[in-house]
Design a protein around this nucleic acid. Structure first.
Lengths: 212, 212, 212, 212
DNA sequence: AATGAATGAGAATTCATTCAT
DNA sequence: AATGAATGAATTCTCATTCAT
């Protein structure tokens, strides 16, 4: 009895935390970090400001929690894609697809917006780097696998390949293209994949032709 | 005599304006827009706050002036590169080189930092778009030229090519790579150029091989 | 129980609002609108500046609230006096009495001081005019009644009578006279009444003599 | 030669001072004391701000000089009217006429506006009082003359008569009436004179009838 | 646990006044 | 004498955070 009561409360608590995160996300997207004020978050959620502070004891914490969640989600996406079966190319294309879908959605845009924000840097630095490192090393494994299998050009340093790929994974120009609906995520994956994989293809193999 | 006196004052004035811009730039890079306060700018320049306002009558104006300057510089770079002699590829590589050099410098980083900032959006929107449009259309002309000359694959929509190129022109991953000195701008140009131009090369021509 | 708790808080809130209004009133009287600063108001009330802004979200609002209160009070006085029983003269004399009493008090002086202030004009204009119009039209009704009953001279335009009366209702010279205690409000009513009512009396009636 | 050069300069100086006073007057009327800024005064006159300070070393001084001039003018008017030939009544009516004319003009309005201004009080107090005292005592002499000649009712204290008259001399209601052109200064003099002089007439004399 | 009133540090901006040229 | 650039004190208003109820 005790237990179920507690867990009910706990469940409600977590529900509310979700509501808070959701509301902050929207406001952050609309106005950015500084223009988001705790009063408004509380008001939109329908709770008192004090209650907000029971969940997140600083404004920073709230935003960081939000980013953390999204980082986790992205990392999970990446790791799922990376460890999926199929060719290196097909796995990387799955990643592109996930990312472009995300860029169209609110979450992706928030992520994009906040990572650029200089003011959150001190907060983000370490976590961000940790994520990025994990992410990049997952990709690196994959790219090396591609090189090992003779699919990719061994003359191009993996680091370059890696950062080129991640430049194409989440970029402002693509975000605009997608938001303005000039292109669908699927088309983008198809063409960007074509360019990238031709670009890094191993010229020793008559691989290139098959991509035409 | 009169004249030289006037121009001395004016020169001093412009010198100080440069100092102000320079100081703001540094602070912006360190802390972002909201954390930059006018007191600090004045203090760093070594002038009174009121004097600051003789140069820029709003904080916004100061930041906008900064961005405007950089926009102009970028646009000029792009237009110079675009209208230079040489192959389409060499001209695009010049652009990559300029951009990567910039990314390493403070100015480029500031530009990068502020364009992401949600809070400056209302201020930037129109100017930003105007710049981006000019920039993209200059590039588009070049890419179409490449297609017309049979250098680039006509099967890839120019829009995609364009946005792929601009994703590679200024990206966070490359910025990190350059700042961490994992790669020199020249190497980056070489490899990114290789990947991109192989990627968009016209497969009808026996062009690909020559790129190995 | 709940109820009384709420109403206690609410009562305290209103008490503090009164304190704020009272403090502002004093400062306004001492220094005028521009010299009154929010820090000082807060300090005198003994609250933080932020708290002040919970009650009045702009300095203007605070001053306007103050004036609004006094306008309401004046208007109510006028309307009560106007609709009281008795002769036109006695009702107008009641008004003089109320006004002179007010001129002696702080409130009246504030009202007097602020209405002259050019800087509040944009704020006051419409409300002020609305009040003044209501006030003047109440008086006009009364004066016309006096004319209709043959008490007042029909040869004097009501507009003139009206504005003459209101000039005597609240004037700087009388304010000084009252503040310097050269005369009591009662005496002032008696003599000013005598002068005004003789002045506007209908000469057709042998009314004048009875006023001696 | 020296002399005439100096006096030319001096003349120019005084001309400029007039321009400054004139410009301030206009701005004061438009915006009030605090909203008038020295930059604007200088700009409107077409001189540098520093030059302004060669004429008036404080903003206050400028405004005080302005008021002083007007006080002098008013006082002169009053004294001329008072010492003119003719009946007491006609002399007082001349005063009313002068005042109402003034109320319609800019100068009068400025005077009116600034005297109400609480913020100038510390500056004005003594001068203002001196003027008012002089003015009132001039009037008092006149009213006493009226009483002595049997023209005015000895039962009404001179103080009351005096302050009643000065209430009618410059009042907000009359200012509005005149500015809104609801009445001409002449008409106003006629009717207000009628009311006032009937009001203070000596009832012992068959004076009243003659006023009908 | 939840509330929301109270706080006060902090930031932008203005403007009278000074003073070197 | 005339200038106008430079100053910095002063003022309004905001908002993250605390804490008594």
């Amino acid at each position: 009895m005790r237990e179920s009561t507690l867990s009910l409360k706990e469940r409600q608590r977590q529900q509310r935390e979700q509501l808070i995160l959701h509301a902050s996300e929207k406001i952050l997207l609309e106005k950015g970090y500084h223009e988001m004020c705790m009063d408004e978050v509380a008001a939109r959620v329908g709770i008192a400001k004090g209650t907000l502070y029971l969940h997140f004891s600083r404004k920073e914490d709230l935003v960081l929690a939000l980013l953390e969640l999204q980082m986790q989600a992205i990392l999970q996406n990446v790791q799922e894609a990376v460890s999926a079966p199929g060719s290196v190319r097909s796995r990387l294309e799955t990643l592109l697809a996930t990312s472009y879908m995300r860029l169209k959605g609110e979450r992706g845009r928030l992520f994009y917006a906040l990572f650029g924000a200089v003011e959150l840097r001190p907060l983000l630095r370490s976590r961000h780097h940790a994520l990025l490192d994990q992410l990049l090393s997952s990709l690196e494994v994959l790219l090396n696998e591609g090189k090992a299998s003779g699919e990719f050009d061994p003359a191009i340093p993996t680091t370059i390949m890696l950062h080129t790929f991640s430049s194409l994974l989440a970029s402002y120009p693509f975000k605009r293209l997608l938001l303005d609906e000039m292109v669908t995520p699927e088309e983008l994956v198809q063409y960007v994949g074509k360019i990238f994989f031709r670009g890094v293809a191993n010229p020793q193999r008559a691989y290139v032709e098959s991509l035409a």
